Computed example of a mutant assay.
Amino acid sequence: MKRPLRAIAAAGLLAAGSIVAVILGGNASADTQICDQYGSTTIGGKYVVQNNRWGTTATQCINVTSTGFSITRADGSSPTNGAPVSYPSIFVGCHYTNCSPGTNLPVQVKNIGSAPASISYNYVSGAVFDASYDIWLDPSPKKDGVNQMEIMIWLNRQGSIQPIGSPVATANIAGRNWEVWRGSNGSNNVISYVAPSAIPSMSFDVMAFIADTRNRGAITNDWYLTSIQAGFEPWQGGVGLAVNSFSQDVNTGATPPPTSSSPTPPPTSSSPTPPPSGNASCAVKYTPTNVWNNGFTAEVTITNTGSSTINGWTMNYNLPSGQTVTNAWNATVTQSGSALTAKNVSYNGTLSPGASTNFGYQATLSGAYSAPSSFTLNGATCTKS
C-alpha cells in the first residue's frame, strides 16, 4: 500500500504558505481542545501532543488531558486502500523542529541503555484505524525533515487496512508474537510489527524492537533515535479513540541494546550460508510492492517445485536499464551492471519440495518501471508464476 508520509504532507502545506495555527507554550491543563490542523501542546512538562491532521481538509479535534488525549471530532474519511487521514499522537523527542521539553533526543542507539515505555489505549467499534507506536531513526541527529527509518508497532487494527509493504517474517518481542512487515513509502523505509489481536495496554522496552530492526540489517548502532510517538491512524471515524496514558524514557548509559531478538523464521540450516547444491526446479513470483517516480520496492518469492530439498540457493537475473538496488532484506543482494545476484541468508537457505521463501529490496529508478524477464536458481531456469 502506497502511503504518503505524515510529516511530508505537513511540510508541503507549510512550504506552500498555508497558515497553520499551533498551540504552543507551557503545560496543558486538562480538557485543552485542539482543532487546528497541526496544533500541538505539551503535557507533564515532558511530552508533546499533536493533532497532526495531514491527510484531509475535514475537521478533526482532540481533547488533551493531563495524561493523554482523545479524538472528539473526526469528519475526514479515506478509502482503506489508501492513506489514513491523520496521526493524532503524543511524543517525546523531535518531530519537524518541534522538540518535547527537556528531551535528550536525538541520541545514538549505541549510547542507549534502555527505553522503558508504557501505553494505555481506549478503542471504539465502528471506526477503521490502527493504534500505532512509532519509532523514528536516522543516520544523522536530525531534528527536522524526514527520517530514513520508521518502526511501527501496531497494537491494534480495525478494518481492511494493512501496513506498508508485505509480511516477511514473524518475531517474538517483549513476550508477544508479531507479524513483521517491511517496505517503503517512497520517502523512508518502514518495518511494522503487527499484533495478531488488540492490545489495550502494554509496558515494554522500545530497544527490543530497535534491536530486532538492527538485526534485520535496516539500521546500525551508529544511527540516531530521534522521536518516539504513540497515537492513531484513522481512515474512517475515530471519535472516542484515546491514549489514556503514555510514559516513555530514554536512558543513556553503557548497557548495550538487547541482542536476543533475532529475525524469524529461525535458522533451518546448521551452516550460516550453505553452498548451492546442484540444479533446482523452481518457480518465481516477482511483485513490485511500491513504485514511485524515482524508485520502487519489490518482493521475489521462490518456490521449490522439484522433488529434492534445496540446501542453499543463489538466484540470478538481470535488472532492466535504469534500476539500481540500494538495500535488501531476507537475502544478500549484489549488483554488477544490470546483473543481480541474491543469496540466501542463515534462516532461509533450505527449501524442501513445495516450500517457498521470499526476499525483497528497494531500488532507484530512472525512466519507466519494468520487471525482470527471466530468473535462474542455482543455475537452473525458473518458471514465472
Rank of each mutant, 00 (worst) to 15 (best):
L14Q: 13
T56R: 04
A10R: 02
S40R: 10
G44A: 09
S29L: 02
L13A: 09
I43T: 08
A9Y: 14
R53V: 04
G39V: 06
T42F: 03
N52D: 08
L13P: 08
Y38Q: 04
I71L: 10
T59D: 13
G45Y: 14
P79K: 13
S66A: 12
S66E: 14
V22R: 12
R73W: 02
V85I: 10
I71V: 08
G82R: 05
Y38M: 06
A58R: 14
R6M: 12
K2L: 03
N81C: 01
Y47N: 13
G76V: 14
G39M: 02
Q50S: 07
V49I: 02
P4Q: 00
L14I: 07
M1T: 07
G55E: 03
T80N: 04
Q60P: 00
A58W: 06
T57M: 13
G25S: 05
V64Q: 11
G68D: 05
C35D: 08
I19F: 10
M1L: 07
T32D: 14
I62R: 01
V48I: 15
I23G: 13
I19M: 07
G39E: 09
R53C: 05
I23R: 08
V22M: 11
N52E: 07
I71S: 05
A21D: 05
G44H: 12
S78V: 14
A21N: 13
F69Y: 11
A10S: 07
N51E: 03
C35V: 11
G12R: 06
N51K: 05
L14G: 13
A16E: 01
G68K: 10
Y47D: 09
T32L: 15
A9S: 14
A30Q: 07
I62G: 12
Q50P: 01
A21C: 06
G55M: 02
R3N: 09
S40A: 09
T57N: 15
G25F: 00
C61L: 03
G76T: 09
S77F: 03
V49E: 01
N63L: 15
A58Y: 15
